[in-house]
Design a protein around this nucleic acid. Sequence first.
DNA 1: GACGCGTGGTA
DNA 2: TTACCAAGCGT
Length: 336
Amino acid sequence: MAPSVGIAITLDDSRPYMGGLLDWYDQNARPLPWRIQKVTPWESLLAEIILQQTRMETGLPYWERIRAAYPTPATLAADTEENLLRLWQGCGYYARARNLYKLAKTLDGEDLPESYDSLLKMPGIGPYTAAAIASISFGQPVACVDGNVRRVISRLRAEHLSDPDLQSEANDLLDHNRPGDWNQAMMEIGSLVCTPRNPSCDTCPLESNCLASKSSNPEEWPLRRSTKQAQIDAVVIVVSDSNGILLEARKGRTLGGLWGLPYAEGEVESSELLASRKVKLIGKVRHDFTHKRLDIAVYISEVTENDETRSPESVPMATLDRKVLRFFRAHENKQS
DNA sequence: GACGCGTGGTA
DNA sequence: TTACCAAGCGT
């Protein structure tokens, strides 16, 4: 039947048929805060960065706190990196916070840029985040490729695609009328239906044109990255008095910008640290990072004249250090 | 392109 | 317990 006179119907035949995904999204999108209320591009950026490699349930409270503390990039630029890290502590991947702070300083009072290319140049914003902000906040036709989209497209095609090929496929699929919603829909279907394990192919709106769903094992795609976790022996020293704990400012990539207990790993450095004062072993704590397993020998030592102790509540610390301190406190309580 | 970077949940 | 994984980025 011909369309009614005066109504223009646009069908983009160059785009592969992905019927029903936006309908599915309109029906099934989770009521996330930024879908219920209007948020600024800055608040949206905070969410994108916090949610990088971080679960929704973990990230949401951080987002609420950080957007409340820093409603604009200028408010963050006017504060210190350490105060941002205080709000970020426990969330992991602290380079995200350090880069976010750099970004706020770089903006120097200006608004976020709106184009993918300009966003991509900012500290801490890579291809995914640039596409997410450009499309969701500014309505630009750029496709997001995150872990979900990678999985969805790999399974649709039943292929192990390179990053450039994935981006290109995602661009071809993009709905140009609702690019932001389309990107969120692709991620949402990956998160809720096309899950890493036990995907719900029987309820998936894309099932009819998904090659993986017709195979014996849809989980075969995408290729997994091999994760070898090294085992590392480390040592920490707890020096405690009525004022608090002896803490040092961590430098470098690992936990940089946070405070922590005197720490060393590896044979040479560990023995150097232990030789620097009179110590007593009180036990061991295990802590896992993605790429290494730390077996941490916990030592205690008496306060000396030069030690400046402080309250561990007053400074940003990683979960690793808080875990060791909990162990120390439990040990103290057992003694008394 | 591969690797380093946190943390917590799940099978 | 182990292995895998989650809205990636920088080097």
